[in-house]
Computed example of a mutant assay.
Amino acid sequence: MQTTQDDAAGYTAGAKIFHWLTALLMTGSFLLAVIMVELPLGPLKIDLYNWHKTVGLTILALAVLRLAWRLRHPPPPMPANMATWERLAAHAAHLGLYLFLFSQPLVGLVMSWASGFPTILFGSFILPNPIGTDQALFDTLSAVHFWSAWVLLTLIALHAGAALRHHFIKKDTVLRRMLPQARR
């Protein structure tokens, strides 16, 4: 397939760093969540919960920086041969991913505050709790955080699947534009 100039344009180095660092941290956060919920209550479980919170708030900070970066560095145009439905689906998926990059850590943080357990970041900094223990709020946000994680995993799978479809089936440059070696 012949590529156009628009097809060949890659993402900026900053966008790639934010993308892959977020992907790495999201993977770590999900792995911590899967492991920590199965452990009996004890020091290891509490440590893993606090590292999960640290990673989550780091993702939130990166999402803020990432959005600021994106507002100043627009993404390259989509390939000219993309169908309208593909463009709409891509925009909807990216909007959903950004929504969850912000909402999931915030819901988790408020849930943590409502639990009554202290939030210890990076193993040493105790985050102040402005709301105190609230079991009903904790229960509600716990369910929201759990189900939102599954929605987020679904969006991530669709995002990755679409990138792979573009690479292996459509044989365009959509995936290569975000890979570290592709330059802009």
Rank of each mutant, 00 (worst) to 15 (best):
L21K: 00
A68M: 12
G28F: 07
M36W: 12
H19C: 06
A63I: 00
M82R: 08
G132K: 03
A8D: 13
F122R: 05
F18T: 00
Q2K: 13
L88D: 10
L141F: 06
A149D: 02
E38W: 07
P77M: 04
I35H: 12
A63C: 03
F122A: 14
L31C: 11
M111L: 10
H167L: 06
A13Q: 11
H52I: 08
S142F: 13
L109D: 09
A157Y: 08
T154V: 12
L41Q: 15
P180D: 03
L21Q: 01
E38M: 11
F168Y: 15
L39G: 04
W147Y: 15
T173M: 12
A162I: 08
T27N: 04
A157G: 12
H19K: 02
M1H: 09
R176L: 13
S148H: 05
T84N: 06
A13L: 15
Q5R: 13
M1E: 08
Q5L: 14
H167C: 03
R183L: 08
S103Q: 12
L106E: 03
S124L: 10
L67V: 10
E86V: 13
L155A: 00
D7R: 05
L109S: 08
P75H: 08
D172Y: 01
L121C: 01
H52R: 06
L141T: 05
E86C: 06
A136R: 12
H145G: 08
A160K: 03
K171C: 10
L121Y: 03
S148Q: 10
P180E: 05
L67H: 00
S124A: 14
Y98D: 07
